Simulated assay, not measured.
Amino acid sequence: MAMNGLIIFITWTDPRLNSPMYFFLGHLSFLDVCFITTTIPQMLIHLVAKNHIVSFVSCSTQMYLVFSMGVAECILLAFMAYDRYVAICHPLSYAQIMSRQVCVKLVSTAWFFGLINGILLDYMTFRGPFCRDNHIENFFCEAPIVIALSCGDPQFSLTTIFADAIVVLLSPMVLIVISYAHILASILGRASSSGRGKTFSTCASHLTVVIFFYTSAMFSYMNPRSTHGPDKDKPFSLLYAIIPPCATPTSIVFKTRK
């Protein structure tokens, strides 16, 4: 979290980093800080406290924030891939295509859909009745696990969340794949090995976060719930909720500034 805070401070205060890539990186770091603070503090409290009770309101609020930040990060990662595509494949038109106004609109779009989508998913999770005390087998309130504790039929809620995950996860993933396919074609077409190495190093950190975040989120929300139990879900919840926010591509900052 400290490194993300440092990135936010540097990218938002240093005029030498006034470019779309650092603009997106600063907002990604801010999203990561928000993401971590919705899960880690409560988990640490439960590790040291004897009372592990989470109120209905606290669980609902945490889930809304996790959904909102997660969806916003999915979309922002796709926009960052598009930014890299424009920078590498259309360098002469980069400043015109990725203007300040366009960058602000893209970030605003990510936040807007994240906040709206969080309302939908939170409602679908808690629409059913909960008629007894329940034990959540995870370190934070995650939708599929909470829905399974409902006294009503969870099928409609699970189906809706599955359909939403297809749109939220696969649509940005398509944009990322297309962007990097064009980037790869452009890299392979270059004769300079040094140019290839610099391009690969610039994109490697972003790709690492994308792989961790998307694969773990897809496993948690796009698989049949009968295939595994909560103990198998925990590692994947950990991957998309904690590991990617802690693995923000800090190397981009330092490699570019050399």
Rank of each mutant, 00 (worst) to 15 (best):
F9E: 08
F219R: 08
H206F: 09
V177E: 03
I45F: 14
I147P: 11
L169W: 00
M98C: 12
M1K: 04
I161V: 15
V86M: 02
F67C: 11
L44I: 13
S55R: 08
L188W: 09
H228I: 10
L149R: 08
R196D: 02
L31V: 05
V104R: 13
Y214K: 00
L77G: 03
N117C: 13
S150T: 08
G189D: 04
S237N: 14
V253W: 07
Y221F: 15
M98S: 05
R225T: 03
I145Q: 09
Y214F: 11
G26V: 08
I45A: 14
G118Y: 01
Y214A: 02
F219N: 09
L106W: 04
Y94N: 14
I8G: 04
N134V: 14
K198R: 14
N51Q: 03
L115V: 15
H206T: 03
C74D: 05
I45P: 01
S237W: 12
I145L: 15
A81F: 03
I243K: 01
V54L: 13
A49C: 11
R257I: 15
S60P: 06
A87S: 14
L120T: 14
S193V: 13
Q96R: 12
R190W: 04
M3L: 13
P235W: 08
P249L: 07
P129Q: 06
L31E: 03
M21D: 03
N223F: 07
S205I: 06
L239F: 09
T160Y: 08
V167A: 07
T248A: 10
I88F: 04
H27P: 01
D164Y: 10
F113N: 07
G114Y: 06
L175M: 12
M80H: 03
Y123Q: 10
Y180P: 06
N138Q: 08
S237A: 13
F56W: 09
I183V: 15
W111S: 12
V107D: 01
I97Y: 03
Y214M: 01
M43F: 15
C34V: 12
C131Q: 07
T159E: 12
T37Q: 11
S58L: 05
Q101P: 01
S99G: 14
C151M: 05
I187R: 03
D233V: 06
M222C: 09
A81Q: 05
A241T: 11
F139C: 06
K232I: 13
F236Y: 14
F162W: 04
